[in-house]
Structure formats: structure tokens, C-alpha cells
């Protein structure tokens, strides 16, 4: 568990990126899980988890005030768990994806609570804000940023600390073949991606034909291998 502190710091930074700062999408699972894998010593496994999750994340775009999973901290947890367990590869990608999804669900809930907390802080400062207090505006912003960083660090630490022993036990008992496990996991993820693609793009004129054309190219590339 020596990795807990650096991972929670990484999870804090990536969790902060989801909404607060700087929203450069370093919090996307493709990035978060890969970097976490590199932290633990197996970038390749982190990337496999990240790519699978990225397919799923296409369905959860951060529109306005909608509730969505918090991928930043969660991807660090899942990518690190899978990378740390890579010596027994059979279930590692599946367990990493599962750990991420569970953490992302809880993380989304913590984001809602953070927004409620920010509103409470804003209400307390309402008088000062209405009088144009520079200190109140800057203080509120810094308090929100700090709270989010702490939220994401704690989430990463708690989730990794709780899930890692369970994941290790699961991988030790895993009975399906490595490739079967990966096929089931990425097959399910691809379903979410395809449905999300249809949802996002179908209203654009001709988009379904572009999708069909792309699919044909993708399948041709696979057939030629």
C-alpha cells in the first residue's frame, strides 16, 4: 500500500480536472487509467483498462448540471488496481473496469454533495457577495477548488484501500480465461459506445451513413490483418 499516497494525489488532481480546474480532460479514463498504470509499473494494463472505459465514458458526457460519473479519481483506482495485479492476468482488466465503474458511481454522488456544500458556503457569504467583496468571491472560489481536491484525494484513497484487497481475492479465484474475460468486458463496453454514438450523432444529417462507412472501414482493417 506504499502507492496509496501518490495514487491519492494523482486521483485528487484528475478528480479536480473533471469540473473545477483546468478541464483539460486529463480526467478521461483513457488518460487516468493509463497514467495510474504507469505509476504502479504496468502502463500497458492501465491502457487496456482505460481504452475499455473510454468506450463506456462516451455515454456520459458532462452536460451542464446533469449528474454523471466522476471518471478522474475512479480511473486512477481501476487502472492502478489492474496494473498492480497484472501478474495474474485472467481477470485483471475486468476487475479494473469494475472497480472504476463502482468508484465513478460513488464519485458522481460526491460531486453532487460538493455542489451542495459550495451552495451552503455561498449562502453564508451572501451579504459580502452582494456588497461586492473581493475577498468573498476569491475565498469562495478557492474553498470550492480545495474542497474538490480533498474530495477527490479522499475518494481515491478510500476506494483503492477498500477495493484493492477484494480485487486481489477475486483475481486469485478467477476461473475464466484471460481472453474470454476481456472479450465479455470490452464487448459490453462496445455496446455502450455504439449506443452512445447513435444517440449523440444520429440527429446530424447523414451521420448514420458516415457511421456505417466507418464501420465498414474498421471491419475491413480487421479482416485484412
Amino acid at each position: 500500500m506504499r502507492e496509496l499516497l501518490p495514487l491519492s494525489m494523482l486521483g485528487g488532481l484528475l478528480g479536480l480536472d473533471v469540473v473545477c480546474f483546468p478541464q483539460m480532460m486529463i480526467s478521461r479514463p483513457l488518460v487516468g487509467a493509463t497514467v495510474a498504470g504507469a505509476f504502479v509499473g504496468d502502463t500497458g494494463t492501465g491502457l487496456l483498462v482505460g481504452a475499455t472505459l473510454e468506450l463506456i465514458a462516451l455515454a456520459t458526457l458532462p452536460f451542464g448540471a446533469s449528474r454523471y460519473p466522476e471518471w478522474g479519481s475512479a480511473a486512477v483506482v481501476g487502472g492502478a488496481i489492474a496494473a498492480a495485479l497484472h501478474a495474474e492476468p485472467a481477470g485483471t482488466v475486468t476487475v479494473g473496469v469494475l472497480a472504476t465503474l463502482a468508484t465513478a458511481w460513488v464519485g458522481g454522488w460526491t460531486l453532487v454533495k460538493l455542489r451542495v456544500w459550495n451552495a451552503w458556503l455561498a449562502r453564508r457569504k451572501r451579504g459580502a457577495l452582494e456588497h461586492g467583496s473581493r475577498g468573498a468571491v476569491v475565498g469562495l472560489q478557492l474553498a470550492g477548488l480545495t474542497s474538490d481536491l480533498v474530495r477527490a484525494m479522499l475518494l481515491t484513497a478510500v476506494a483503492y484501500g477498500l477495493i484493492f484487497p477484494v480485487a486481489r481475492a477475486m483475481v486469485a479465484l478467477w476461473t475464466f480465461d484471460e481472453h474470454v474475460s476481456r472479450a465479455v468486458t470490452v464487448g459490453a463496453a462496445s455496446a455502450v459506445a455504439a449506443a452512445a454514438a447513435w444517440t449523440i450523432f444520429h440527429s446530424a444529417r447523414g451521420a448514420r451513413w458516415y457511421f456505417a462507412g466507418g464501420l465498414l472501414i474498421g471491419l475491413l482493417i480487421l479482416a485484412m490483418r
Partner: peptide, 10 residues
């Protein structure tokens, strides 16, 4: 993106 999605998923 629709075209790219068709290539990327498989």
C-alpha cells in the same frame, strides 16, 4: 465523429 466511431469501436 460518426465515421470515426465506426472505425474506432471494432
Amino acid at each position: 465523429s460518426a465515421a470515426v466511431a465506426g472505425i474506432a469501436i471494432p
